[in-house]
Design a protein around this nucleic acid. Structure first.
Length: 784
RNA sequence: GCCGCGGUGGCGGAAUUGGUAGACGCACAGGACUCAAAAUCCUGCGAUGGCAACAUCAUGAGAGUUCGAUUCUCUCCCGCGGCACCA
C-alpha cells in the first residue's frame, strides 16, 4: 500500500461530495429531520479563523453522526456580510463593499470547502443580497405595522472631526478610534424597536428551551426584571410631582432626599426656577458630554448638585426633603428618578456622606401596604431597553420608510421591496452626519405611497443584528421570492416530528455559537421570532430548542489572535502540510470544547501519527477471530464515542478512538467487521481518510456508513479490578466478578497477601464495599 | 464592584451519582532497526527517599463534612470572559 497522501485523498473526496450533492438536505423526506446550526460568519478580510474551524467541525461531527443514524440533516452556511469593517475598508480605499464582500466570501468558501465540512452549499445565504434583505425589510414593516417600530430621540457617540456617528466599539478611552478626537454625545432621532414589550415573555419562555445554564442566566440578567413601586412625591408649593421607582418601598420613611438623572426632563424644568439655575445647567451639560467610559473611569466618587429653593414632600413622613441631580442615577432605568434611603442603600449612603445629607434610621413597613397607602403603583420594571435600530451608515439594509410632508412616516409598500442600497461615489456621511445615502438625490427623492406627492426616503440603515435575527428561517427555503420562507417548509424543519399538532414547541434543534453572542444576538433573534409567531408566520414560539457555546481559541501566549499582533494562524498552510483531517482532529483533541484554549501546534504531530497508524492498520484487515477483550473494548468505544459526541466532549471521543486503535494495532490481524465499525466511529472526525480506506477495503456505502450500535451484553468485562483501601489509602487491588456481593468481596480482600499484612494485629472497626469499585477497612492501628 | 467560568505532571488535558488521581496526546530519556540519520516500533516518565520491594507527599492556599474529597461546604488567592453607579 502506498503511503498516506492527504492531498490527493482530500481533493478526491471533496470533489465526489460536491458532485453528488452528498450533504444536501431534503425538504420532503421520510427520514426524521435534524436542524443543526452554527453562527454564520462575518466574512472578514483576514480569512477563516482557526476558531471557526473548531466550532464548525464539532457540529460537523454531530451532523455526520446524525446522517449515519439515518437522519435528514440540515447543516447550512451563509454570510453575515453587512457591517463596519467592510464599510471602514471602503471609506479608506474607496472600494465598493460589494466587491470586497465578494472577494472575502469567495476566500472563505474555498477555505471551508478545503476542510470537508458537510455544509449544504445549495442553501447558502448572504445578508447583503437584495433577494435576502428584501425579507429583512419586509419583517421590519411587519414590526412597524404592529406598532413595534417608532422614532425617538437618543444620544449617539459623535466624532466632531469625522462628522460621523460611532459605534461603542469605535470609541477607545473616550476618543474616536480613527482621529483621536474626544467623542461627544449628540441627540439623534432614531428608529427604535419595542423589544421591552416582549420582556416578560422573553424571560419566561427561557423555561421552555434547552440552553446551557450560562446562556439562560445571561439572558435573564440582561432582561433583569425587578418588582417594586412607583411612588409620586409632591413638590412643595408647586403642582409638579416627581415619580420615583423603588424596589424598597418598605424603606419609604427613611427617604431623606430625591435624585433625578441629569437627562430627566424635570431636571431641566426645575432648574429654571431654582436659586442655582446656572450651576444645575452646567452640571447637566457636563454629564451629557461625558461618555459612558469617562463616567466609569471616574470610579466611585459621586458627583451631583442640589436644586436649591425647592423641596419634595415624603408622602409617608410628610417631611420636606431636598432634591438633587446626580449622574449615578440613570435616565433609562425605572422612572429616571429615585428616592434615596441612605440607611439602607450603599450608594445613597456614600452620596449622603459626601454631601452631608440626613441619614434616617427607620422601622420597615410592609412594601405593598405602604405603596397602596401613599397612592403608588406596584410594577415590574426591566433593565432591558428598547433596541436602537438606526445607523447613520452606508453598508446596511435601507430602512423601508418614507416621510411625507402631509402624511408623516409611511411604510414602503411591500410590492416595492426591496429598497435597493444604491451605489455611491463616497462612503463618507453627509455634512450633517447623516448616512451617505442622504447625498444621493435619486435615492432620497421619491413620491408618497399614500398621497402621491413628493416625499423623502429614510436614509438610515439597519444594524448588523437585523440580518442575523432571522437567517435560520431563510435556510429552510432560501430561494423563495414570494415569501421569506414557505409555511410547509418552516413546519417541516422547525417542528419536532413527534410533537402534537397544537404544540408550538420547536425550533432549530441545535444552535452552537460563541459566548459573546448569548445575550444580544440571541435576545434580538428570539424577539423577532416571537413577533413572527404572533403574526402566525412561524410555527414555533422560540427559534432555538438547544443552545451550546464553544470556547475561544487563543494565541500560544493566551492572548487573542489578531492581525495587528501578527499571531493569527492561517489554516491554509496547515491543510497543505498535514491535511484537513489532521487539522480537524487536532482541533477536536485540543481541549474541552466549551473552554478557551491556547493554540499549540506541537501536538499536531500526534494526530497526524494517529491517522497514519489508521492507514497502516487497513493492511491488516482480513479474516480474524474475535477475542472477548476486543469485543468488550469495541462496545465500550462505541458507547463512549456516541455519548461524547452528543455532549460535545470531542477531546475524549478522539482519545477513546486512539485507545481502540492502540489495541487493534497489537493484533495479528483485524477482522473486516471490527474495522468497519471503527471506521464508522472515526469517519465524522476524519471523513476523507475514512472514506478512502472504506473504499480500499471494499466496503460499499450502505455497508459501512451507518452508526454502530452498542451490544449492551458485551459492555461489561468478565472481571473488574477492585481497589482495597485501609483507612482510606489504597494498599492493593483484587479481581472480582462485577456481580460479587459484599461478603465475597470482603473475604477476597482479606485473603489478599498485602491486605493481610496491613490488617495484622489491628481491630477492623468498619468495612465498606462499593460494588465493583472499592473495599475500605477502617482499623485502629496498634502501632500508635 | 457584580455575575459567570476556570486553577490537576515539563506541556495540552482525563477522572459517570464522592470510590484506584494523572487516561489519551506532546515533549523528553533509554533501547531496537540503520553504515548513518529521519521515520517507525518497544520501554520508561508527578515529587521526595530507597539498589529494590516499598514508603511518604501531591489536584491554587487554608479549614470543614465523610470510611473515603480533584469532585460537596466555608474563607481566601490568582487567571479568563461578560456587565457595570440598574435604585
Amino acid at each position: 500500500m502506498e503511503r498516506y497522501d492527504h492531498k490527493a485523498i482530500e481533493q478526491k473526496w471533496q470533489k465526489i461530495w460536491e458532485e453528488s450533492g452528498a450533504f444536501r438536505a431534503e425538504d420532503e423526506s421520510k427520514k426524521a429531520k435534524e436542524y443543526l446550526l452554527i453562527e454564520f460568519p462575518y466574512p472578514s478580510g483576514d480569512g477563516l479563523h482557526v476558531g471557526h474551524i473548531r466550532s464548525w467541525t464539532a457540529l460537523d461531527v454531530v451532523a455526520r453522526k446524525r446522517r449515519a443514524q439515518g437522519k435528514n440533516v440540515l447543516y447550512p452556511i451563509g454570510w453575515d456580510a453587512f457591517g463596519l469593517p467592510t464599510e471602514n475598508y471602503a471609506l479608506k480605499t474607496g472600494k465598493d463593499p460589494r466587491l470586497v464582500t465578494k472577494e472575502n466570501t469567495d476566500n472563505f468558501r474555498r477555505q471551508i470547502k478545503s476542510l470537508g465540512i458537510s455544509f449544504d452549499w445549495s442553501r447558502e445565504v448572504n445578508t447583503t443580497d437584495p433577494a435576502y434583505y428584501k425579507w429583512t425589510q419586509w419583517i421590519f414593516l411587519q414590526l412597524y405595522k404592529k406598532g413595534l417600530a417608532y422614532k425617538a430621540k437618543t444620544l449617539i457617540n459623535w466624532c466632531p472631526t469625522d462628522k460621523i456617528g460611532l459605534a461603542n466599539e469605535e470609541v477607545i478611552n473616550g476618543v474616536c478610534e480613527r482621529c483621536g478626537t474626544p467623542v461627544e454625545k449628540r441627540e439623534k432621532e432614531q428608529w427604535m424597536l419595542a423589544i421591552t414589550k416582549y420582556a416578560q415573555r422573553l424571560y419566561d419562555d427561557l423555561d421552555t428551551v434547552d440552553y446551557i445554564p450560562a446562556a439562560k442566566l445571561g439572558q435573564r440578567n440582561w432582561i433583569g426584571p425587578s418588582e417594586g413601586a412607583q411612588i409620586k412625591f409632591q413638590i412643595a408649593n408647586s403642582k409638579s410631582q416627581i415619580e420615583v421607582f423603588t424596589t424598597r418601598p418598605d424603606t419609604l420613611f427613611g427617604a431623606t432626599y430625591l435624585v433625578l438623572a441629569p437627562e430627566h426632563t424635570l431636571a431641566q424644568e426645575l432648574a429654571e426656577k431654582a436659586e442655582n439655575k446656572n450651576e444645575i445647567i452646567r452640571y447637566i451639560e457636563q454629564s451629557r458630554k461625558k461618555t459612558e467610559i469617562e463616567r466609569t473611569t471616574e470610579g466611585k466618587e459621586k458627583t451631583g448638585v442640589e436644586i436649591k429653593g425647592m423641596k419634595a414632600i415624603n408622602p409617608a413622613s410628610k417631611e420636606e426633603i431636598p432634591i438633587w441631580v446626580a449622574d449615578y442615577v440613570l435616565a433609562g432605568y425605572g422612572t429616571g428618578a429615585i428616592m434615596a434611603v441612605p440607611a439602607h442603600d450603599e450608594r445613597d449612603l456614600a452620596f449622603a456622606k459626601k454631601f452631608n445629607l440626613q441619614v434616617k434610621e427607620i422601622e420597615l413597613e410592609d412594601p405593598k401596604k405602604i405603596t397602596e397607602k401613599v397612592g403608588g403603583k406596584w410594577v415590574t420594571t426591566y433593565k432591558l431597553r428598547d433596541w436602537v435600530f438606526s445607523r447613520q451608515r452606508y453598508w446596511g439594509e435601507p430602512i423601508p420608510m418614507i416621510i411625507c410632508p402631509t402624511d408623516g412616516w409611511v411604510p414602503v409598500p411591500e410590492s416595492d421591496l426591496p429598497v435597493l442600497l444604491p451605489k455611491v461615489e463616497k462612503y463618507q456621511p453627509s455634512e450633517a452626519g447623516e448616512s451617505p445615502l442622504a447625498n444621493i438625490a435619486e435615492f432620497v427623492n421619491t413620491t408618497c405611497p399614500t398621497c402621491g406627492g413628493p416625499a423623502k426616503r429614510e436614509t438610515d440603515v439597519m444594524p448588523n443584528w437585523a440580518g442575523s435575527s432571522w437567517y435560520y428561517l431563510r435556510y429552510c427555503d432560501p430561494k423563495n421570492d414570494t415569501e421569506f420562507a414557505a409555511q410547509d417548509k418552516l413546519k417541516y424543519w422547525l417542528t419536532p416530528p413527534a410533537s402534537p399538532k397544537t404544540s408550538s414547541r420547536g425550533g432549530v434543534d441545535w444552535y452552537n455559537g460563541g459566548m459573546e453572542h448569548t445575550t444580544l444576538h440571541l435576545l434580538y433573534s428570539r424577539f423577532w421570532h416571537k413577533v413572527l409567531f404572533d403574526l402566525g408566520l412561524v410555527p414555533t414560539s422560540e427559534p432555538y430548542l438547544k443552545r451550546t457555546s464553544h470556547g475561544l481559541i487563543l494565541a500560544e501566549d493566551g492572548s487573542k489572535m489578531s492581525k495587528s499582533k501578527g499571531n493569527v494562524i492561517n489554516p491554509d498552510a496547515l491543510v497543505e502540510q498535514v491535511g484537513a483531517d489532521s487539522l480537524r482532529l487536532f482541533e477536536m483533541f485540543l481541549g474541552p470544547f466549551d473552554q478557551p484554549v491556547a493554540w499549540n501546534s506541537d501536538s499536531i504531530a500526534g494526530v497526524r501519527r494517529f491517522l497514519e497508524r489508521v492507514w497502516i492498520l487497513a493492511e491488516k484487515v482480513g479474516e480474524a477471530p474475535l477475542s472477548k477483550e476486543t469485543e468488550t473494548l469495541l462496545a465500550q468505544t462505541i458507547d463512549k464515542v456516541s455519548r461524547d459526541i452528543d455532549a460535545l466532549k470531542m477531546n475524549t471521543a478522539v482519545s477513546s478512538l486512539m485507545i481502540f486503535l492502540n489495541h487493534l494495532q497489537k493484533l495479528e490481524s483485524v477482522s473486516k467487521e471490527i474495522f468497519k465499525q471503527f471506521l464508522g466511529l472515526f469517519a465524522p472526525f476524519a471523513p476523507h481518510i475514512a472514506h478512502e480506506l472504506a473504499e480500499r477495503v471494499g466496503f460499499t456505502r450502505e455497508k459501512w456508513e451507518h452508526w454502530p450500535t452498542v451490544d449492551e451484553s458485551k459492555l461489561v468485562s468478565a472481571t473488574v479490578q477492585v481497589a482495597v483501601q485501609v483507612n482510606g489509602k489504597v494498599r492493593s487491588t483484587i479481581e472480582l466478578s462485577p456481580e460479587a456481593g459484599e461478603g465475597e468481596a470482603l473475604a477476597a480482600a482479606r485473603a489478599d497477601a498485602v491486605v493481610t499484612k496491613w490488617l495484622a494485629g489491628a481491630d477492623v472497626k468498619k468495612a465498606v464495599y462499593v460494588k465493583g469499585k472499592i473495599v475500605n477497612f477502617v482499623i485502629t492501628s496498634l502501632d500508635v
